[in-house]
Design a protein around this nucleic acid. Structure first.
Lengths: 206, 206, 206, 206
DNA sequence: GATGAATGAGTATTCATTCAT
DNA sequence: CATGAATGAATACTCATTCAT
């Protein structure tokens, strides 16, 4: 009974923290770090400012926490997709699918994510960019391993696996951005087909 | 004579405007929009704040002007590269080369540019993103036309030219970022070779 | 039985109150009124903030209570010293000794006390200064009575006893401050001798 | 003409700075460092907050500047009094007179001064207390030199000059406080007479 | 009765912008 | 016409106090 109450309180805490992060995400993704005030976040999350400060040491900490949670979730999903027990081509398909899913689910997050991964944040603690870059490179590495196996199995050409990973990532980014900008004009299936076609077979006739 | 004096004044004005933009660029690219104050820009450009306000309606306007000038220059260079009188494959090579050149020349600007093109700017008047997106799409369209010609000439596969353009753009972005992050490890030549190989021939063995 | 329980509870209460005041004193004397938060006091006293508020109406009230307790204790000790059954000169010696003792015991408190007695406290309810001033004047009065008796006994010159009291107080304050600032350089004995010599005999040669 | 304009501007600046310091003094001396906000000071001085920050780096700097100006002025006046070309007794009288004058002129300053010299300020930069202590000791030293000369001239008893200086200072403080608290009851002349009588001749009958 | 989570008023400081000189 | 002094709105963060559990 004691335990239950404790756990309930902890769940309550978690819920509140989540509400704050959700509110912050919504605002940050619309107006950026500097465009949002702590009061706004507190108001949107329906707490007093002081309460927000009980959960996060400051605005920067709140922002970093948010970005990290997103990054961790994102990269975990990608690594999961790549660790399935399938053949190379299917795995790469899984990767693209997982990435598309994330883009779809968190369209609003993406502006933030891109800004972060690409180093477009200034002023914010330098460590953040670095950490996100690390997670990003981590996924690329796993992707490269999958590709390497494909090369060894002679499924893929004997090119540098890391560069092939970079290429696939760039390709998916480009198409998924298209899709995000105008989902009607750039349906998911068409994008997927193009990525596959271009990455695997190239564009040269014959 | 009146005209000459006026024109001289106008040239003087233009020079001053340029100095302000140069100073602003240097500061913005190092510390971001919010990390720079109008006083700093004025000081760096060696003018009084009031004078800067004579040229630009406000900080936002100055920033937008700056980003637009960069974008216009960038896209002009890309369109130039694509309008040379060469065959399809060579033109695509020209495009990649021109893009690489821009990246190399303005490494410091890129963080700003990327942030802008990808919609990572907030607060800043929404119009900016839109305008830059328009320029971006404009280049993509020209690239698609080049590709379309290549398809008609049967040099390239009969895939959607617009998507092929998107793909090439994504591919070059990915590799050029690699290069920017660590030029030693990812030399330009290797990147160029990979882009060509992957885009034109794909990665599938056989 | 009821009474006993009540009294035990009351003793318990008193103990808690004392712990709070002790914690507060330690913190206030180190960092001043504004440098200490109620949470700190509560934590140091090992109570919840709410509990502290059960005992004291607010921070100001806690501070005033504390200062008053110190003042009351201080002045009681001085009045005690002055009510011993000795001759005038000895009584004055007792007074100086008692004051020195207080200074020695509560060096850390003194900054607070001085600030209070001399009216250097702001913000804090004006009443505090007044109350402490009253206690202070009360002691001066007793001292003046002792001096008056000395005058009547022709031990002391026929000067205004109240002013003589003021003088003795100022003299002891000055020397005891010296001593507090640098006890090595200004040993207690030397100070005591100087106070006696100067107060009783003056500095004029012959 | 150019010079005149410059000097006029500088005088204007000085005037503004003075107004700010005056407003700050009035508020600080009534309500203490923490009891006054920068907005209040700005309002009282009839400037915008930003303007106050053009003159003073921050609240602490403004406070320190204020205290220092007062201390410097105070101590200069005392040292002046002690450097006149008179005999020992007259010089000591000058000292007391100068101190009384300062007390009279700046009654409102005194609470601040006492608080500062006696170390009743917490949180505020430690250096301030130290600096004021240094100025204070400096005057005491000069006073001790005067007394020493008096001792050599056999005008004063052969006691430690430094301690005699401490005593005189303590004596004057005590009487001047009396006077400040209730000028009617403790007229200046009576105080002066008592200080002289007690310091020079002591209180012991015969 | 004790607790400490939640509150939100209050404050120092910055900086885009204006306008008198 | 350039200047830069003056402005004051805006904002992150603290902490005394309250009150539901």
């Amino acid at each position: 009974m004691e335990e239950k109450r404790l756990s309930r309180r902890e769940r309550e805490k978690e819920r509140q923290r989540g509400e704050m992060l959700t509110a912050a995400l919504e605002l940050f993704s619309k107006r950026g770090y500097h465009g949002v005030s702590m009061h706004e976040i507190a108001k949107k999350a329906e707490f007093a400012v002081g309460t927000v400060y009980k959960f996060f040491k400051g605005k920067e900490h709140l922002y970093e926490t948010l970005m990290n949670e997103i990054a961790v979730k994102y990269h975990a999903a990608l690594k999961d997709a790549l660790s399935k027990d399938e053949d190379t081509i299917a795995l790469l398909g899984e990767y693209v699918r997982a990435k598309a899913e994330i883009f779809a689910d968190n369209a609003s997050v993406l502006r933030l994510y891109i800004a972060g991964a690409r180093g477009a944040n200034f002023n914010i603690r330098a460590g953040l960019d670095k950490e996100m870059g690390r997670l990003y490179d981590d996924v690329l590495e796993v992707l490269a391993l999958v590709i390497e196996k494909g090369v060894r199995k002679k499924v893929l050409k004997a090119l540098d696996p890391h560069y092939m990973a970079v290429a696939l990532d760039g390709l998916t980014n480009a198409f998924l951005f298209c899709w995000l900008k105008d989902p009607e004009r750039h349906p998911y299936q068409a994008n997927l087909a193009m990525i596959t076609e271009l990455f695997l077979r190239g564009s040269l006739a014959r």
